[in-house]
Simulated scan of single mutants.
Amino acid sequence: MKNAALQHVAIIMDGNGRWAERRGLPKTEGHRQGARQVSVILEAARDAGIHYLTLYAFSTENWKRPVQEVTALMKLMEEFLDDKLPELIEKNVRLRTIGRTADLPSGVRKKLLDAIETTSGNTAGVLNLALSYGGRAEIVDGVNRYLDEAWKSGRKPPKLTEEDFRDCLYAPDIPDPDLLIRTSGELRLSNFLLWQLSYSEIYVTDTLWPDFGKEEFAEAVASYRKRERRFGGR
């Protein structure tokens, strides 16, 4: 029996820098074009009946990039939030985020929190941005959250179960991704959703993110629907 239900797609949006370099443009132009593709894929996901779209926008490791590039990315994030908020409101899409967002510059963080609050009642879909996010960091933060809550209650932490631990993650109410898409042909997870991707189907394309459009997204969805998910069973 082939897959039919597809409610959550996660994407590692890779290839912005290479896209720019091949055109003799600065990396910031690649990131800018990549930001534009979010609207395209958000619409494609909606057309495919997908409710949750999680995008790997900025990792904990990305802070190690040159200061000038990080500054440009943060400025672009502010522009992205300004530009996309009216669209999210119009399309009834809720904005959420996962990651160590307290590390973001105050201007970005304020716009992000405002957009999250403004769209909190939207019900047609969820755009979940992974910002200052790392899969290992999420696991460490989850363990610390579990221990903090246990000690605050004045009791020894009980034996941890998978269900208890999941409740301590950044967004425990969002279902695990059914499908992970990675653009640009790289074959690695890059510290993305390490807990949640345990049984997700994976689709890798050589297409760079700024060129990844509706047709490519449809191909990824079609590939998923041809597969049979076993979750370790036969």
Score class of each variant (00 low, 15 high):
P158F: 05
T183S: 14
R225V: 12
Y224T: 06
A171N: 13
P175F: 14
E162I: 04
L169M: 10
K214P: 04
W209N: 10
Y133C: 08
E228N: 14
S153E: 14
R182T: 10
E215H: 12
K152S: 14
R166I: 07
E219Y: 03
R227H: 13
A130L: 09
R229L: 01
L129V: 02
R136W: 02
S223W: 11
P175W: 13
G134A: 11
E149T: 13
D148W: 04
K214Q: 09
L129P: 07
K159M: 04
F231K: 15
I202W: 15
C168Q: 15
I202C: 12
R145Q: 12
F231W: 15
Q196A: 13
G125P: 02
E163W: 02
L179W: 00
N191M: 01
R227D: 13
C168E: 08
V221T: 10
R166E: 06
K214D: 12
A137P: 02
E215F: 09
G135T: 08
L187M: 12
T161H: 01
S153I: 04
L180R: 12
P175L: 14
Y170N: 12
F212C: 06
N122E: 04
L160A: 06
V140Y: 00
S153T: 12
E149D: 13
W195T: 07
L208K: 01
S190G: 06
D173H: 15
L189E: 03
A124H: 06
R145S: 06
L187D: 06
N191C: 08
T123W: 00
P172N: 13
S153P: 06
P158T: 05
R145H: 11
A220R: 11
D211S: 08
I202G: 08
P177Y: 15
E216Q: 14
C168L: 06
F212L: 08
V126C: 05
K214A: 11
A137K: 05
G125S: 02
Q196R: 11
D206K: 11
R225Y: 14
A130W: 04
L131N: 03
Y203T: 11
R136K: 13
C168I: 08
D173S: 12
R188N: 07
D148V: 08
D176K: 12
V140H: 04
L131V: 06
L169K: 03
P157S: 09
D206G: 13
R145L: 05
P210N: 06
K156E: 15
T207V: 15
N191A: 05
L197M: 09
N191F: 02
N144M: 09
D141Q: 10
L129Q: 03
Y146E: 07
L131R: 10
G154H: 02
R155G: 13
R155L: 10
V204Y: 03
N191W: 07
Y203P: 14
Y203F: 15
D164Q: 08
V126K: 03
V143S: 01
S132L: 09
I181N: 01
V140L: 14
V221K: 11
G125M: 04
I174F: 11
F217L: 08
F165D: 07
T123C: 01
D167C: 07
W151E: 12
E228T: 15
K152Q: 14
R230T: 01
L169I: 03
Q196C: 02
C168K: 12
Y133G: 02
S223V: 02
D148A: 13
K226F: 01
L194D: 00
I202N: 05
E149I: 06
D164L: 09
E138W: 01
E162Y: 01
P157L: 07
D148I: 05
V221L: 13
V143Q: 00
E162S: 07
P158N: 08
